[in-house]
Design a protein around this nucleic acid. Structure first.
Lengths: 191, 191
DNA sequence: TTTCTAATTGAACACTGTTCATAATTAATT
DNA sequence: AATTAATTATGAACAGTGTTCAATTAGAAA
């Protein structure tokens, strides 16, 4: 039996999240099962239920970390000296990069049904969402309009990556996500 | 044992698709299991595997039917006498209506990972996609641009409904999907 | 009526998530 | 130091999942 003092409760939680992340990266979201994670961290499935409400919550914890990494990239962009429009383009590119660099983690975040949420997760979402509305404010005209535009922008990025993933929209020709986002932004940011 | 001549192979397939649809409508995509469908049609799970490659394929068959119903609505819109832009707005509204009227079938179509595809499904996707590019042609300037814009439009609708579904983007305020789509289209169709 | 063919079954296998009494380990108390 | 109390980990169990396939059965053909 694993020693109880080997790791504190919080340490163990981190270890499980890390192992789960590795599993998803290596084998995709479907590999995130209680038994797989337990085996990888040298515990039994039951232990995971002392750390998380259920397996969905472990997925949410992994997603929270992914979102935090992404929001740090955004923060880095905002601390640069680009103009708002250029910043928005960089943020969009960062999203596309996340999708391309870590498609499995992206899928766990955005292409997999997830019943569970949490305050930490909500906060991470907001940390991604808020900077976009801030950067949009001078363009959209008003805070409320900026928030609406942020939702539109986010939805479009989201949808383009999703459809690229399934390949359903590249029926005949080959439009990389970058090209579609560029065309969208060229119009979206021009007013 | 159910009589072999009660239904032809194709009839049985239709019955299974219909039963599956009822299940999804009543209890959501997660209820689409081999045993549930089998029980509902008075057969055993094994029989389903004579009709479909796997359960995913049954889901795809249901989705194909959903898409066909949707494409018929689109066709109806195109046979009206509206101008292209008005037609596009109506098509978008029809998509939002599909999402609102039959959220479970919509989810099975667009919010559930689906490994399987089929020629019929591909064709149904194209039947939804092609009219949009046709209506966009006079606006976008060129066929290729129209196809790109169709992808953008589709992605945005897609993403807005998805985010509405999870409620993740209506953090504080209440922006109904209609309002976001309207704001998007007001700009998207103006050039 | 017997033979042949095709459809249907149902048991089995390997997986899921999840629960919970029991055992093991550590901390606290006497 | 010995005993007691409080955690923590276990692993077996339950109810599900998709899927396969030998055996059975029904209907058609001979």
């Amino acid at each position: 039996m694993a020693r109880r003092k080997d790791h504190s409760r919080e340490e163990l939680k981190e270890i499980a999240i890390h192992a789960g992340t590795e599993l998803v990266v290596a084998e995709g979201p479907a590999a995130l099962t209680a038994r797989n994670v337990a085996k990888l961290i040298g515990y039994t499935p039951g232990t995971l239920y002392n750390l998380f409400e259920n397996i969905d919550a472990l997925g949410t914890a992994i997603n929270t970390k992914s979102l935090r990494r992404f929001s740090q990239e955004i923060e880095h962009i905002l601390h640069g000296h680009s103009k708002p429009k250029k910043q928005l383009r960089k943020i969009c590119q960062a999203y596309l990069d996340f999708h391309q660099r870590e498609p499995e983690l992206w899928a766990l975040c955005f292409a997999t049904p997830n019943k569970t949420s949490s305050e930490a997760h909500q906060a991470a979402v907001e940390e991604v969402f808020h900077p976009v509305t801030a950067a949009l404010a001078p363009i959209s005209g008003g805070t409320k309009a900026a928030r609406q535009d942020a939702k539109i922008l986010w939805s479009t990025l989201h949808g383009i990556c999703l459809l690229q993933e399934t390949g359903k929209l590249d029926v005949a020709e080959n439009d990389p996500a970058e090209a579609l986002v560029k065309r969208f932004l060229d119009q979206f940011l021009n007013r």
